[in-house]
């Protein structure tokens, strides 16, 4: 293969802000010189139903922009398990929301159940679950630098959500950091 290739998915339901998380991470990676292709599949309805945001990350130009097998999978709803699970690599890292996606298939794939949505609720708005998840993913994977994603969240958030998003990102990091330390 000409380039290293990392693939990841935010999976959940429509309206959870998965595509925003994907775009923010893609922007952060692009700012570090990575080539990123970001794709999604969605249903013709605007809300509800299985939804996902996929990223393919490479050091050079991405030849095939769609994911083949995931290195990282973030699950924010049980609806996303069935279409995503068959496409993870054997050693993939899975992060699932404790409340919204309580059950995962058996197997040896490393997985972490984190209270992402509960943390968002505690911050005051469940809608920032996507940003909590973003922070947790980056903390666990080290896929990009913290200052890169912070810069993107700072510049890419609507004014009303700026502080909340920054808090959510930090909360995601805080959730995952002890897990990451335990794993290493």
């Amino acid at each position: 293969m000409p380039h290293s290739r990392i693939e990841l998915r935010f999976g959940g339901t429509g309206g959870q802000g998965l595509i925003l998380s994907g775009k923010m991470l893609a922007d952060a990676l692009a700012s570090e010189g990575k080539h990123v292709a970001q794709s999604q599949t969605y249903e013709p309805t605007s809300r509800g139903g299985f939804c996902n945001a996929d990223l393919v990350v490479a050091n050079g130009e991405v030849d095939y922009p769609l994911p083949i097998a995931f290195d990282y999978l973030v699950l924010l709803d049980k609806l996303a398990v069935k279409p995503s699970w068959p496409r993870i690599k054997p050693d993939a890292l899975v992060i699932a929301d404790t409340r919204l996606c309580p059950e995962l298939p058996d197997g040896s794939t490393p997985r972490h159940h984190l209270p992402l949505s509960r943390t968002a609720l505690e911050l005051g708005n469940e809608r920032v679950t996507n940003i909590v998840a973003l922070g947790a993913l980056i903390a666990l994977s080290g896929i990009c630098k913290r200052q890169s994603i912070e810069r993107v969240v700072r510049t890419g958030s609507p004014r009303a959500f700026l502080d909340l998003n920054l808090d959510a990102l930090a909360a995601g990091y805080a959730l995952a950091t002890p897990v990451a330390a335990a794993a290493s």
């Binding site: 990123v36 292709a37 794709s39 922009p65």
Partner: peptide
């Protein structure tokens, strides 16, 4: 549709 709605750097 894939090329249309996917994003690339």
């Amino acid at each position: 549709q894939v090329i249309a709605q996917s994003s690339e750097t």
